[in-house]
Nucleic acid binder design. Structure first.
Lengths: 190, 190
DNA sequence: CCAGAATTTGAGCGAGGACTCAATAATCTA
DNA sequence: TAGATTATTGAGTCCTCGCTCAAATTCTGG
């Protein structure tokens, strides 16, 4: 589809425009017209480089999620703390994309069966990843109980992200860090 | 607006149709056409009984928010276990409303400022309620730490509900009950 | 039963959405 | 540089959306 330099550059401009629009106005304000305006192109160019509007949006969301992955190679060396920190970064530095991420999980999961499959698979992978990280640091955990605790931690993280979406002032970071440091009381530096 | 029996009944049918559609396909799939089709009426009737599409949606949303609150009188006698059990009942017996409840938590907060206010106020009330119940059963908690733990529990509950929305088989009830019985291992009756 | 009010109908409006396509221009490869 | 491929254009299609309204029908209190 895109093979020449010009096309690849334009594709990047479109992605950037989509990213900006999503970040400032959510799904609602992200129209083809707006994307084209911001990327300084005409609709025909958009559809020469992207299959559909959804493809552009999913591209941006996937990029955002991957950009924050502490272990993109999948070496299985990441710790639970690193995984949580990655999520903290994602939620605090890309709050709107985080909202879209949750939005797609709740709404898109029901509408489109293909998207639903993607989301479920992503969730499974994520749960396994957390469970493995847990077992690496705590040998006493059985595979079963590691999965269970991974589920609890992930649920809490998502729920906390939900609060943060509603209230910018919510202490998402502090809450999330406490999750993986349950033994010691919250530190205080006077 | 609606004064005769026929009108009141139709109004209820429209609300039910809106509720079902919201749960099924989210805001996206909830169009006037779809609502009318499901309620077996024509658009004119809809607009004779509702000001706008938003009014119908807000009606359903208000119902969902109120359904999550088991003790609207606020007598201040409920325990944390009762509150969690109420949420379990809500999620498992009213999955439709539960899904809507989560959807508006993610999406509704941004678009409509009036709705945003409602959601935030609901969240504040709920957080205080959980915190007070916690303090009643555990005298050692400071007001501050009670609120903090209430936030954590509520976040986890919402996150678990999100998983449950995506996967009917997810053990929401078991997870939720473990949250308020952290000291003892899960009981087993042979 | 009847007059007035409420309810229902259904074609259709204007706006805005995603998307198309034939023609032209730009770019790369051999 | 010629030929082939890709990129860009932009007017325009088709669709669906929320919503309207005059006319017909149904309901209810007196």
């Amino acid at each position: 589809m895109a093979r020449y330099r010009a096309g690849l550059q334009t594709r990047e401009r479109i992605a950037a425009a989509t990213r900006d629009l999503l970040a400032q106005g959510g799904l609602e304000g992200t129209t083809i017209k707006a994307i084209c305006q911001r990327a300084a192109i005409r609709p025909g160019s958009f559809y020469n480089l992207f299959e559909s509007k959804d493809e552009a949006i999913l591209t941006v969301v996937r990029e955002a999620i991957e950009a924050v992955d502490p272990d993109p190679e999948g070496e299985g060396t990441d710790t639970i703390t690193e995984l949580v920190e990655a999520y903290i970064t994602f939620v605090t530095e890309q709050p709107t994309l985080a909202r879209i991420y949750l939005q797609i999980a709740v709404t898109g999961g029901v509408t489109d069966p293909h998207l639903h499959g993607r989301i479920v698979r992503h969730g499974d992978r994520r749960r396994e990843r957390f469970a493995e990280a847990l077992r690496r640091s705590r040998a006493d955990l059985t595979p079963r109980s590691a999965v269970r605790e991974a589920e609890r931690i992930l649920a809490t993280l998502n729920g906390l992200a939900l609060f943060r979406v509603l209230d910018d002032g919510f202490d998402f970071t502090g809450h999330a860090r406490e999750l993986v440091k349950p033994s010691s009381p919250p530190p205080r530096q006077p």
